[in-house]
């Protein structure tokens, strides 16, 4: 007969899911795109991602030690941030860029707000926008399959065969040099994790099947961008072609599956998620058409992040049985 019994409130069983398990699924989902990046940009891209992961993990742990919070790097959320930050950088960046970006993401955008779950904006996108301050290094893209030195801290100008990204080509009017097949497969210039639309979508579908994310944000986000670019193509371009180029370029698909769906900085209700996705899509297109930067994805998600609390409040589900009349409102 037992001497000591645990008395605690129900429920007494759990389904066993953990934050770490969810994060591991997200990491698995990003691997295809990472492997492709190594194929297209060489091991330099893997090295940049690894530096970025190390930076995020180390800065999160350091910050938590300094402010005497439990160290939470084992939940792997810093690893995800690191991979995504690396994905958002070109393979040609000097290594101080991912290091500084990791520090900004983990300390300024996440740590000071209280750590995991408490941040208002997506740390990776905040860091990316912070790094936009170094426009030239951030926007130097190499041609696909140009051999880059793997381990050097910063690359010499001579090492880089620079290439315009599809988005900047479209910004200057007209369509990119790459074919649509290149665009979707990912044999084009761009950031490390952004190039292969198809492999990112494969990862996204894995997350959908594992029920880590729901369809609401990716579908409404991509759908809004497709709709708007199809209705409003620049004069002289084929609407369908322009739409497909727009969807497959920049970080749109990566963001739609991996960054706009970040739990902490997106709404919790299905309707809210759809509003969030539509908002992201509309702002992305607006910036791509009228903004100074060729890319609007990061800004659009950051802006929508700020509205998440209000969206949740607006889309509170209708209560089962309704609200009693005498309840205080």
């Amino acid at each position: 007969m037992p001497d000591l019994l645990t008395v605690s409130p129900s429920p007494h069983i759990r389904n066993g899911i953990t934050t770490r398990r969810i994060n591991i699924d997200v990491i698995i989902a990003m691997l295809p795109a990472l492997v492709w990046a190594v194929y297209v940009f060489g091991f330099r891209s893997l090295f940049v991602v690894l530096v970025s992961v190390a930076s995020c993990v180390i800065f999160e742990a350091l910050f938590e030690l300094v402010v005497r919070r439990p160290v939470t790097v084992l939940d792997f959320s810093a690893v995800i941030s690191g991979i995504l930050l690396g994905f958002n950088l070109p393979a040609t960046v000097p290594l101080w860029i991912p290091i500084a970006g990791g520090a900004f993401a983990m300390i300024v955008a996440k740590g000071v707000f209280g750590g995991l779950g408490k941040n208002i904006v997506n740390p990776v996108l905040a860091a990316r926008v912070f790094l936009f301050s170094w426009t030239r290094v951030i926007n130097t893209f190499s041609k696909p399959f140009s051999a880059l030195p793997v381990f050097s801290f910063s690359l010499e100008e001579a090492d880089i065969v620079a290439s315009a990204t599809p988005l900047s080509a479209m910004k200057n009017g007209g369509l990119p040099d790459f074919s649509l097949v290149d665009m979707f497969l990912g044999t084009k210039s761009g950031c490390i994790g952004e190039v292969s639309a198809i492999l990112i979508a494969v990862g996204g579908i894995y997350l959908l099947i594992r029920k880590v994310i729901s369809w609401h944000i990716p579908v409404t986000y991509l759908g809004t961008v497709m709709l708007l670019t199809f209705i409003f193509p620049p004069s002289g371009t084929d609407a369908l072609q322009f739409m497909l180029y727009q969807v497959s370029s920049g970080g749109l698909i990566l963001a739609a599956f991996f960054m706009a769906t970040d739990y902490v900085t997106s709404p919790t209700t299905p309707t809210g998620k759809m509003i969030f996705g539509i908002g992201c899509g509309a702002i992305t297109v607006f910036i791509r058409y009228f903004g100074g930067y060729p890319e609007g994805v990061s800004f659009s998600i950051l802006i929508m992040n700020l509205l998440v609390g209000y969206i949740d409040k607006l889309t509170k589900p209708k209560r089962f049985g309704g609200v009693p009349k005498n309840a205080k409102q």
């Binding site: 899911i17 934050t19 969810i22 939940d75 779950g117 902490v264 997106s266 919790t268 589900p317």
Partner: peptide, 11 residues
């Protein structure tokens, strides 16, 4: 318990 990650599973 860890921090709420606002995943919405409870909702």
């Amino acid at each position: 318990p860890e921090n709420c990650i606002k995943c919405g599973r409870c909702v």
